[in-house]
């Protein structure tokens, strides 16, 4: 089950729902009921209007590759061997997040900023699934 010796997230009250959804392989985002803003990372107040009137909405899990790097000198104890791809994905719903791009050759010549990607969850411990992304298949 675990392929992960690296750092694992420890939730805070405002992020617990996100990580619990991820464990069920569901990507959820906070949305502000006051102004409609969808944002990431989860906070206890909307970063656009500071309202605390927030709700969780399920994201499509689809997005585009916004930018990326191929890491050759990697983080210590990180389980994906070098080279690996760190990506910023812009979700279809708007917010961006950091992730890994997987199921691809870690070769800049074969990756294209703007390419469609989709979420794939990696069960890295009994309690934690990380949202990674791969090139969209459908």
């Amino acid at each position: 089950m675990s392929d992960h010796a690296g750092p694992l997230p420890v939730p805070t009250p405002e992020t617990r729902r996100y990580w619990e959804a991820a464990r069920r392989h569901v990507l959820e985002l906070p949305r502000c009921r006051a102004c409609g803003h969808r944002f990431f990372y989860p906070r206890a107040a909307c970063p656009r209007c500071l309202s605390a009137d927030l709700e969780w909405v399920q994201a499509s899990g689809r997005g585009t590759l916004h930018t990326f790097t191929v890491v050759h000198r990697g983080a210590r104890d990180f389980p994906l061997g070098t080279p690996y791809v760190i990506a910023i994905v812009e979700l279809a719903e708007g917010p961006r997040l950091m992730t890994n791009l997987v199921d691809v050759e870690p070769d800049p010549a074969r990756l294209r900023i703007g390419m469609p990607v989709e979420v794939v969850f990696a069960d890295v411990s009994a309690d934690v699934a990380l949202p990674r992304f791969r090139p969209a298949r459908a």
Binding site: H4, P11, Y41
Partner: peptide
């Protein structure tokens, strides 16, 4: 700490400095 924003939302993806 492991519950900081950066350790929750960046470090698990291998951000290497």
């Amino acid at each position: 700490g492991p519950d900081s924003v950066r350790l929750q939302f960046e470090a698990p993806f291998g951000l290497a400095g």
